[in-house]
Amino acid sequence: MRTPFLILLFLASVSCQPKNKSEQKEVAQKETSETQIQTKLSNEQLQQFETAYFASGCFWCVEAIFESVKGVKEVYSGYSGGSEENPTYEEVSYGRTHHAEAVEVYYDPKVISFEKLVKVFFGSHDPTTLNRQGPDRGAQYRSIAFYKNEEERKIIQDYIDLLENENVYGNRSIVTEVTPFEKFYMAEEYHQDYERRNPDNSYIQNVSIPRLNRFKKNFKSYLKEEVH
């Protein structure tokens, strides 16, 4: 009878949510200060590419997945989907806003299309779990595919219809929100490239890396050469 409790205790210990108001930030800052930070592309360089926005659970995981995809030039972790301005990690992760943890994806449309990014999105998480992804629970971890125009909205909806028509998830319904993009707020610096910079973190070891590896196994043709 104690097994379910032990499982819940383990999941809580590796949750993306901070253990208290200050501990997670303090630990993350300490970890990242001890690792070399890869130089990001300049704003001028980024302007050459298109952007796409998705939310599918802890942004540490989602960022690493999209970073592995060929044609993707840069990915940032942040917050979107709510109305509150300048949200913080503590506010979002504790469910004090209407935002979700999200990512901003800069990609080269000559190499990868928005349609393929949508396939990456649906193929790298469970879109049938409402307000939950893995051990992380709450609306801040909900599944959202953002669109910037009618063409993108149609691409997303058509793919959802395809998944449902092919009964990919059995009798489980897709609960992904298809939402017009309004604003993306960059997360605090220590969240950027979190998986790469903090490989020994317990959440990264037990949740993020296994999730990335499952994606890589199923989307081999989408991967950059260096991550095969």
Rank of each mutant, 00 (worst) to 15 (best):
L212P: 02
Q140P: 05
G57C: 05
G71E: 13
S83P: 11
E90P: 12
G57H: 02
N43V: 04
T51Q: 11
K116E: 14
A139C: 10
H125Y: 11
H125A: 00
Y159V: 04
K148L: 12
I204W: 03
A139G: 06
S68F: 02
F5C: 13
Y185F: 13
E26Q: 14
E104G: 01
S221Q: 15
R211F: 11
Q140N: 03
L163A: 01
P18D: 07
C61D: 09
I174Y: 01
G82H: 00
V72R: 03
Y76L: 06
Q48D: 15
Y79E: 12
E151F: 13
S173N: 14
Y76D: 11
P109A: 09
N218Q: 14
S173W: 15
L162M: 14
K217Y: 10
S15Y: 08
L212E: 08
K216P: 09
F54P: 03
P18W: 06
S173G: 05
T39G: 08
E152V: 08
G71R: 11
T88N: 02
N206T: 13
A64H: 09
E166F: 02
Y94P: 12
D161E: 14
T32R: 06
V75S: 02
V227I: 11
A64N: 08
G71A: 04
F10M: 08
S68R: 07
T35W: 07
T35A: 10
V62L: 03
Y169W: 00
P87G: 09
I174R: 01
Y159C: 00
F54N: 04
M186K: 15
I204D: 12
V14N: 04
F54A: 09
N86E: 14
K148S: 10
K21H: 15
K110T: 09
E90W: 15
T39Y: 01
E189S: 11
I37Y: 13
L130K: 15
F181Y: 12
P4C: 03
A64C: 04
F54E: 06
N206S: 09
R196Y: 09
E31D: 04
Y203P: 04
V118T: 08
M1C: 10
D136R: 11
E23G: 13
Y141S: 00
E164I: 02
Y194N: 00
E31T: 01
Y203D: 14
F181V: 09
P180S: 05
D108L: 02
V27N: 06
F54K: 02
Q36H: 14
V14E: 00
Y107T: 04
P199F: 02
T88A: 08
E226H: 13
D193R: 02
S56M: 15
Q36I: 07
M1S: 13
P87V: 05
